[in-house]
Nucleic acid binder design. Structure first.
Lengths: 232, 232
DNA sequence: CGCTATGTTGATCCATATCAATAAGTGTGG
DNA sequence: CCACACTTATTGATATGGATCAACATAGCG
């Protein structure tokens, strides 16, 4: 752990309000490692030995069943992942792999649970974090069950648009094949969905996206705060 | 609130370890009401004014978008629902309606949050509950994204089988149309999926289900603890 | 600079949705 | 208690969104 990294971790909502001594205990127990792309960090079913924090790069959460695989989420700096398994002392429900070269901090689950037991501020921060995660998955479920694939793509692009501060031109931060899986469709189908959105003023070239008629796209996509707002 | 109901609530994991005085504060502020079937209790987007507890009957959580509707979960006694919105002081992401005549306890969110702030045991119980909810939704997402509709039905029946303590004959506790929506398919498609499972020794007549060849059904369904275990 | 993974496009197939008709419950009021 | 209305379940016919297969283009990358 580089000393200069510590303030950034301390700045996370999850660790911000906890006792300084407890925070230092956690940090002392932490491992830090830089991984190349496409390295598996955890495998679903394994025991949750560490709470992971993505410090740089990005991590894909995915799941398998019966030979099939689907992308569940992308974790970007700086945030933790699979907190629930750590706290519950339960097996991971998802696997995780680096999408790009990534710096990962690992806090032993045992230490996290110990601090959780004695630090009340930390316990409450965990609640906030888990409530956030929960609501986020509920939104994803609504997205998948209530929308067609073209609608999901349209709304995904609108979410990117908002996350980039309202830019009408931006870059996709994720491979298309991964995006397809994340949105519950095949790469071929994503290609076609993107083409279908040309009719609503969306131009995609490689990873760069341009929305030429925002109103038209929104009229089609019908974004809802109860599905698409990343906070709320 | 009938005095004889209080021990049952106290017995819930969520309230079991909290301070007696705080528990009494919550109970004092509670409303109790019996609703007929098909009554809307909450509507998505509304502010979360109450934490609800299903005391008897059952409640369906569902969501709408753009004129479409999908069932998200069924809540059975005795458990709470939409804790995350209450704690985060955020709008509900799902609507809820009674499926049958139901006795519902409502704790004002404000009181729940007040107790949450001062009662550390309660705060930790909230964590456990939210972690459980989170993992449960993740499993549902995996079920939907990784399995075909027939596979989902097969695994649903196996879950019923386990929840009834291993019975090979049991009753569906939910209307078929609701089940279809819950599993992300149409009622017609559910009918056909059930018919397709005859090949694996499943006989459904009305609401009664009989599994004649468990091994065969399991071989087809390939249940996984990481998707189908209700605890874990 | 070639190799391999990714992305696109077209053709086809299949799972699931939709539409339609009927049957079977379920509840209600006379 | 039955007749009627209404909702739910089933079945068949058809339509369609999305998957699969195949071919090619493209872009990273060693």
């Amino acid at each position: 752990m580089r000393p200069e990294d510590i303030p950034a971790i301390r700045g996370l909502d999850l660790f911000h309000d906890m006792d300084e001594g407890n925070f230092e205990d956690l940090i002392r127990a932490a491992y830090v490692q830089t991984f190349p792309p496409q390295v598996d960090l955890i495998t679903e079913g394994d025991h949750a030995d560490f709470l992971h924090i993505v410090f740089s790069g990005s991590v894909e959460l995915y799941a398998r069943w019966n030979g099939r695989e689907t992308s569940m989420a992308t974790v970007r700096p700086i945030s933790t992942f699979i907190l629930a398994a750590t706290i519950k002392d339960a097996p991971y429900l998802m696997s995780a792999r680096t999408s790009e070269k990534s710096r990962i901090i690992m806090l032993p689950s045992l230490d996290v649970r110990t601090v959780f037991e004695k630090d009340n501020a930390f316990a409450r921060a965990v609640v906030t974090e888990l409530a956030q995660c929960y609501r986020s998955v509920v939104k994803k479920t609504k997205d998948i069950k209530l929308r067609s694939s073209v609608e999901r793509v349209a709304n995904y692009l609108l979410r990117c648009h908002h996350q980039t501060g309202g830019a009408l031109e931006f870059e996709l931060q994720i491979e298309k094949r991964r995006l397809a899986s994340l949105l519950g469709m095949t790469p071929e189908n994503l290609s076609r969905a993107i083409k279908a959105l040309r009719a609503y003023g969306v131009k995609v070239d490689g990873t760069s996206v341009r929305i030429s008629d925002l109103a038209d796209l929104e009229k089609f996509a019908k974004p809802s705060p109860l599905i698409d707002d990343s906070s709320a």
